[in-house]
């Protein structure tokens, strides 16, 4: 019995270390995606790297306020297919779905009132791992810039 508990503990520790290792490997992945960072924009603190597989979607939450332009970029060079993402509000209403915009990997927008938004990224479940890379590191890059004033 004691041996079993030791074995189980060891196994769990290994599992945790492995998952921490994976997430930390991907955590700073966004730093490799600097070409996405254009003039005038600054990274939002919620910009992050994730390990994405076809088994489960991942979510990044951030707050959007008026007077700011936001730019969401999905950077996933190691995954061979364009990623699907949606942006939802707190009531789980879909405000943007990139499948209705040719699976664009970049979306720039503004809001006219405060919103807590979730970016939910997933890989098409029909993705065939034997043909193409269906998992790997990816980054959800959230950038923001002051919305320029227009008119006189």
């Amino acid at each position: 019995m004691k041996q079993f508990i030791v074995f189980l503990s060891g196994f769990l520790i290994l599992l945790i270390i492995q998952s921490i290792g994976f997430s930390q490997d991907c955590f700073e992945y966004y730093k490799q995606c600097e070409e996405y960072n254009k003039k005038h924009y600054k990274y939002d603190d919620n910009t992050t790297g994730l390990f994405l597989s076809s088994y489960k979607p991942d979510t990044v939450i951030f707050e959007a306020v008026t007077g700011i332009n936001y730019k969401i970029s999905i950077c996933a060079d190691s995954i061979s297919i364009p990623l699907h993402f949606i942006i939802e509000n707190e009531e789980n209403e879909i405000l943007f779905d990139n499948s209705s915009d040719n699976l664009t990997q970049v979306f720039e927008f503004s809001v006219n009132n405060y919103k807590k938004l979730s970016v939910i990224v997933d890989i098409d479940k029909t993705c065939n791992e034997q043909i193409t890379n269906c998992s790997g590191c990816m980054a959800v890059i959230i950038e923001k810039a002051i919305k320029p004033r227009t008119g006189f």
Binding site: N69, K71, I87, N89, E93, L95, F96, F107, E108, F109, S110, V111, N112, N113, P148, T150, F152
Partner: peptide
């Protein structure tokens, strides 16, 4: 009074309370 022809998604925002407004690229 200066008027630029055409239309822009940003100027229609008052009618859509819940949505996100795609950034105007034609600026």
């Amino acid at each position: 009074e200066i008027s630029v022809p055409g239309s822009s998604v940003g100027l229609e925002k008052t009618s859509q309370e819940k949505g996100l407004f795609k950034k105007d690229t034609e600026i």
